[in-house]
Design a protein around this nucleic acid. Sequence first.
DNA 1: TCCGTTATGTTATCTCATAACGCATCATTA
DNA 2: TAATGATGCGTTATGAGATAACATAACGGA
Lengths: 161, 161
Amino acid sequence: MHMGADCHHAEGAHPGLTGPVLADALVLAERRCAATQERLTTPRRRVLELLLEADGPMKAYDLIAAFGAHGEPAKPPTVYRALEFLERLGFAHRIESLNAYVPCRMDGQGHRAAFVICECCGAAEEFEPDFATQLAAAAPSGYAVRTVTLEARGLCPACQA
Amino acid sequence: MHMGADCHHAEGAHPGLTGPVLADALVLAERRCAATQERLTTPRRRVLELLLEADGPMKAYDLIAAFGAHGEPAKPPTVYRALEFLERLGFAHRIESLNAYVPCRMDGQGHRAAFVICECCGAAEEFEPDFATQLAAAAPSGYAVRTVTLEARGLCPACQA
DNA sequence: TCCGTTATGTTATCTCATAACGCATCATTA
DNA sequence: TAATGATGCGTTATGAGATAACATAACGGA
Ligand SMILES: [Zn+2]
Ligand SMILES: [Zn+2]
Ligand SMILES: [Zn+2]
Ligand SMILES: [Zn+2]
């Protein structure tokens, strides 16, 4: 969670997973991979685990640093390859405006993600935007829109207090 | 213009400005700065000129390389500071998903920009989205949204052919 | 002219991401 | 089971994007 230096509020809506809940999430990911002939290999699984454990968006080099069980970092390509895989399968998303990554909270495969990001505490919440409206608005000159990146910024409920 | 390697289409909708049109745009920028006690200094003006001359989004290090009149590049902070100023005044926008910068085409100060980006030729077109609708859609959990970044990808009219 | 403020020049460093190469692993099939 | 092709990993090195820190210069009001 990359919060503003002076944020005094409680953490956001997505504390990291632990214990059986985390284990269940990883088992579910295994199953979804198995169903499509994809392989949730050790580094891929480890990066997903780190994302799920985190309280908020994780930077790539935070993942690199946290990768090894006993303090040994990973090499950058290891983590970037895993992130590419996780994004491709819809297990994770990149937040462009943060250069950071989150696990998917919507658990629909291949869906389009949008985020609201709290400028105070750094929480990022995924939501499913109204794309019909947006696509209509986003074709000003005959563009055929294929994907949309939407990242809103503001204050989460806790930080409005 | 950062186009796909194999794009065979005509250039996008915004060829770079040259001659009197470019000069007029810079004079207009001077006037808008004067009206608000802001200073369009030499490096700021030069970076704006480079953005206006370009056919499409410019990377920061392209601006750095092109900065000097006789081939001498600028130092990074010179260009990044100028970009910060130009963004603050609404003369330029950063496109997060490209790590690139464009001059504002809407010439409304302080407005919120959105872009459609052609995946084939690299053209980026600015438009004014329907933010009322999006803001409503973007408040899934009581977030108070302040700004929205919207970047769509697809094919421009020329590249659909 | 003095002084506070704003902007620039300069050096160094930091963060983020990928290219390239060889080896390991897995699945296929002969 | 051995050969084969495809996919993924480990490793080294480098490229691309951005900023910290500090000194100097230019501006603007008192
Ligand atoms: Zn998702
Ligand atoms: Zn918050
Ligand atoms: Zn604009
Ligand atoms: Zn195009």
